[in-house]
Structures are given as C-alpha cells and as structure tokens.
Design a protein around this nucleic acid. Sequence first.
DNA 1: GTCTATACAGCGATAGAC
DNA 2: GTCTATCGCTGTATAGAC
Lengths: 202, 202
Amino acid sequence: MRTEPGARPAGTTTRILDVAERLVQTRGHNGFSYADVATELGITRAALHYHYPGKAELGEALVARYADRFAAALAELDVEASGAPAALEGYAELYAEVLSRQRMCLCGMLAAEYMTLPPAMQRGVTAFFEHNAEWLRSVLERGRREGTLAFSGSAADSAAMVLGGLEGAMLITRMNGDVAGFRAAAARLLAGLSISADQIPA
Amino acid sequence: MRTEPGARPAGTTTRILDVAERLVQTRGHNGFSYADVATELGITRAALHYHYPGKAELGEALVARYADRFAAALAELDVEASGAPAALEGYAELYAEVLSRQRMCLCGMLAAEYMTLPPAMQRGVTAFFEHNAEWLRSVLERGRREGTLAFSGSAADSAAMVLGGLEGAMLITRMNGDVAGFRAAAARLLAGLSISADQIPA
DNA sequence: GTCTATACAGCGATAGAC
DNA sequence: GTCTATCGCTGTATAGAC
C-alpha cells in the first residue's frame, strides 16, 4: 500500500479510485480513458501509470474495493436488520442509494462489458455476484424457516431473481433518473416473497 | 433503401446489421469497431462507410431493426397467447431465446452504455423500453381484470418489475451461460404475479 | 459497391528528467 | 510523485480510383 496510515489529505490513490469508480459506474469500463481521470485530477496520464501500471490493474482495484464495501454493508445488515423482510428492504435500499447518485452498480455495469474485460476483472465481478446471491439465499432461507417469507421453489432461484431484478430495474430506471420508479419496482419484487396478505387487487 | 426488392442473396446491408448486432449484444457498442465488422465480412472499412456513413447511423439502424422485431413478437403474443399468464411466459421466453444464443438483449446492453451513446440511439433505446413497459402493463391489467393475475400496487409498477427483472437476470446469467438459471429466476418472478396457489413452503 | 491510400485524433504505455 | 516527450497501435472517417 502506498498510502501510509498517517497520511491524511485523501491520498492520490484514493482519489484516482473515486474518479475512476464514478466514470465506470456512469460510462462503463470501455467508456472512459486514463486521460479522463488524469484531467479531472489535474495530473498527467503518466502519473496515473505510477499508481496503477495499466487500466486492467486499476479496474481490478476498483472491483475489489467495491466488493469489499458491499460485503461490509451486507454484514451490517446482518447485524442491524430485525428480520428477513427488513434485511431484504435494506438490501434494496443499498441499490436505491447508488441510483440516487445517478450511478449504476459498478459490477452490473461490468457485467454488460464482461466479454471485453481482462480475466482478473471477470473473476472479481463473478465473485461479487456469487457473494451477493449467497447472502440473499441465506436471508431467504432464514425468512422461510422463521415464517416471515414465503415463496415457491429453491431459495437460490429466488435469490437470483432478487439480484437480477434489482440490477435490471437499476439499469433501466437510471436512463431517466426515475429513483421513485425503482423503489416501486423493488417493492413489488419483494412483495412477491412476502407472506401474501398484500395480494389485494386494486 | 439500397436493397432492391428483387435482390435475394442476403444483401450486404443486412449482413452488416447481422454481424454488428451480434457484436453489440456480446461486446457492447463501445466494445467493437468498424474493423471488426469489415474483417468478418471480408470487406474493407471504407466499404462499410458506404452503407452507413458512421457508427452512430449504424447504431441507429441496429436499434430500429431490433425494436421492430420485438414489436412484431409482442403483436404475435397478443394473438397467440391464450391468456395473460401465457403471454407473460411467452414474453420471458423471448428473453430466454436471446440468452440461449449467448447474447444479451441489444437494448439492455445499450442501456448500460446509455451515457456514451449518440442522442438518436438514446431515443431509440428509451422508446424500446417504453413500448415494452406499456405492453406489459396492458397484459397485467387484463390479467387482473380477468382474474388470472393478482398483484398489489399499479400495473405500471409491476410492468417495470418484470421488464427490469428479465433484463437483469439476463445480464447476470449470461456471464456463465446459465440459461436454466435464467428460466428458474424468470419463473419465480412471474410466480409473484400469479393468483397465489404456489405459495407452498418447501 | 468495393477498393487503396491516407488523414488525424485518441488510446494505453514507456523512458528518463526533475 | 509528477513531469515532458514520444512510441505504436487502433479508432473513425474521407478522397478518389476502379
């Protein structure tokens, strides 16, 4: 690590990651260049190569940091959420917060570009989704066991549905910035997993 | 139109669109070049510029053709599907067929790259999703009216959920080619709209 | 309708000075 | 840690011959 524990004023490495992260989340990995990042930071491309030898390495660091943050958020939900339904709502809210900053999920973006990514990034993206699916599966199983959730089929299938549903709703609502529309679609998605009661025709 | 009605052997224009379509669906609009298309067709880049002056125009034609095909498929579902649930299953199967050819939905792909697209392509992608959401909404309303579907909230919100859910499930399952996983997630998604009955804890 | 040739901008990346 | 300078490659696009 190049940033020593004592160095406070937001190290260059961190600022590079912050700018690059936003660019990937809005324009995609194939939609930004080293020049974009360097210009925004007021440094040259060459300086960027000092911190990250190539775009592939920068991309790997991006995925790793994003996955770590998400994992931490999931661990926090495990502790704070009062039950499975609340955990799912908190999970959906993580997505809504990203969207409200007019961004797409970093790994959702990279999923679209998957075929063009360097192998190390592909592995990172795959691991991100597997970890999310596994977390969702465990929450769903717990909810079913405790009687707070009800659904047909395997918990893994429903986990895939929730994961895909949120990523997809995000992908589409981001185009017009309709965060309220996202929240409504997410609520409907989770409603299909609740113990009926809400099956009230309008 | 440069392809006369009598010219049979699959005009160059069509073959260009076919190759470019596959490239966008697998690699994205920012993930392929004129050279990729030209090489595969055994012609030069310059020849490509004769048919489509620029990548933007090629992209517009791609979106327009894809949207037309999809609209035709939806119209056919209106005629052939016996009821709202069958129409929804047929709709999901359209996605499954694209995925089974190891492709992502063209417009789903372009939704990720939305911020980097030329304005005309942006309009085309937006129109595609609006048309799909509107079709889904009308199917959902009919199903609710006829008593074959049941769901809380507005039909528009559930339409957004189905659309986003299928696009997202597609986006994620494409990474490992898990078509069976997609079908399972899609079935679970639609199960949340059926008149309960399947709420049987395993 | 396709070719050769070319222009020119942008890209990722490296070497070496400071 | 950042700079200038430069390389080689790829990108889109154009002009003009056939």
